[in-house]
Amino acid sequence: MATFRLLDIAHGRSGDKGNHANIAIIANTPGDYAWLQRHLTADVVERYFAPLKPSRVERYEVPNLHALNFVLYDVLAGGASRSLRSDTQGKALALALLQMECQRD
């Protein structure tokens, strides 16, 4: 089984809405999108970001962009207004997810 990172097959961007964050992961090819649809589930993303204690993770499919959009609820330690973290707006979350190690089946 070949190991790779998500950023080898996708790109993305993340941002905030209050105390929630969204991460868009956009596949490079239709084949990559099919792989993401099957493997990058809301559960996988919730486990990956467990240290940030999201209250829940929702996944939305955006097939026209070959993209998955994840909403991570209550993950920003208070959000832009009152979070004590450096990354108050979740700007780094997309890059963190794209660094995830995956295995080709």
Binding site: H11, G12, R13, G15, D16, K17, H20, N22, A24, I26, E58, Y60, V62, L65, A67, N69, V71
Partner: peptide, 16 residues
């Protein structure tokens, strides 16, 4: 298409 797709989903929850 990459820069536009990334921005289309920026700060979006349910894309529908």
């Amino acid at each position: 298409v990459e820069t536009i797709a990334e921005q289309l989903l920026y700060e979006v929850a349910d894309p529908r």
